[in-house]
Design a protein around this nucleic acid. Structure first.
Lengths: 218, 218
DNA sequence: TAAAAAACGTGGTAATTACCACGGAATATG
DNA sequence: CATATTCCGTGGTAATTACCACGTTTTTTA
């Protein structure tokens, strides 16, 4: 476990917890290391999930399958990312998603009920952990809410403008987006070429200027 | 405060907390009652928010305003609903939304940092409160995630099917939706008449049958 | 550095959806 | 019970977007 301490210490879930204390926590939370070969599933749709997972090595997909069997990648996980915290915490009986590793990976699984119910020793950092959990969940909430507002716009143009402006409040008029075109289109839930079309129209209309993933609001 | 105890006891945030203990909590959390006249704002976009609010009487809107000044109702609040918990918890500096009462209303505001940091008396139910908070937030998370998956579908038809099927897993083939047409359209982020058009096409194609808010998957 | 793969823009067409307008049904109101 | 209001379906048209195809540019890989 020590081997992965440098990763664990960067996980937001363990913010403001000393490295030594993280190790104690791992015991406290019945942490178990698991190795997966590329393509293996950590859990699948319908499973009961009561472990929070943290990716220590490699990468994974969170996948949603609908009734017809179509698969959609909801998000990608890499080192230091965690998953299943909302599912555990909400007490969902059957997972609505699957998690599949996209390369050989190592994952640590933590017993969720141990997170919630402070241990008998009631370590101080355990309180901090719960606080962090709340913080993490609240932030995810807000991020989801933001994305909802963008996607719920009816025209592609307003989706783009909305998104760029939401970044602009922090970055100013010159905005760098964390996507390439395809990812950008996925984020906005539109077709890639439709997005390209619309972007060039917006440039023509003098609304924006851009090159690759750097945009300028005019 | 006692006057509103029957409402407070039904709030999920106070699940499994005795009525007597809720009253103690109110002191603990520096609860303050506020009355608002119809149309007044509880807080507005950009404000620093560090109180969680619970509606005790009347109703309110959560409103998002974009840069052009267009206003969208993100959600409506009625008795027993609470708001601003994610904003507080995520430590957001400037609120991304406003809350406006849509009828004369009474609201109780709770000091969020008191929720997070158990009081010196470290009342047992305080721990329960934090647990509930996590639970509530996680569930909201999952609900948001579900809705995202639905509105991220590209065609109106697949949005409808996706939504109905998500209900069908719980309700079976005969599904009752909690919306009228306009609300349904808003939920799916589409035009009302477009939705009506598509629904009748789907009926024609033998995919569904419906009357008002009762649907049947075929 | 040559070849392969990925990323991006763009033209054209078909499909989908928004938007407007209206009338009938259902519901609420006095 | 009469009237007003809300709710819903539908026709028609314009606008938007998806989808397919292809060429150019950029990046990756061997």
């Amino acid at each position: 476990m020590k081997k992965y301490l440098s990763i664990l210490s960067k996980v937001k879930l363990f913010d403001n917890i000393e490295e030594a204390d993280i190790l104690s926590l791992m015991t406290c939370l019945e942490a178990r290391l698991h190795n997966y070969k590329k393509g293996e599933f950590i859990f699948t749709t319908g499973d009961r999930v009561d472990n929070v997972g943290i990716v220590l090595r490699g990468s994974a997909y969170i996948i949603k399958e609908n009734i017809e069997g179509d698969r959609t990648i909801i998000s990608t996980l890499s080192e230091g990312d965690y998953f299943a915290e909302a599912i555990c915490c909400a007490g969902v009986e059957e997972s609505p998603v699957s998690v599949q590793v996209s390369s050989d990976a190592t994952v640590v699984l933590l017993n969720f009920s141990r997170i919630l119910h402070t241990c008998s020793k009631s370590c101080l950092f355990h309180t901090k952990l719960i606080e962090n959990m709340l913080y993490v969940m609240a932030n995810k909430n807000i991020a989801l809410q933001n994305r909802m507002e963008i996607i719920s716009q009816k025209s592609l143009r307003s989706k783009v403008i909305n998104y760029l402006q939401s970044l602009a409040t922090r970055q100013g008029r010159n905005v760098t987006i964390p996507f390439n075109r395809e990812e950008f289109a996925d984020f906005l839930c539109v077709d890639r070429s439709s997005l390209s079309h619309e972007l060039s129209r917006m440039k023509q209309d003098g609304l924006i200027d851009y090159h690759k993933n750097k945009f300028k609001l005019l």
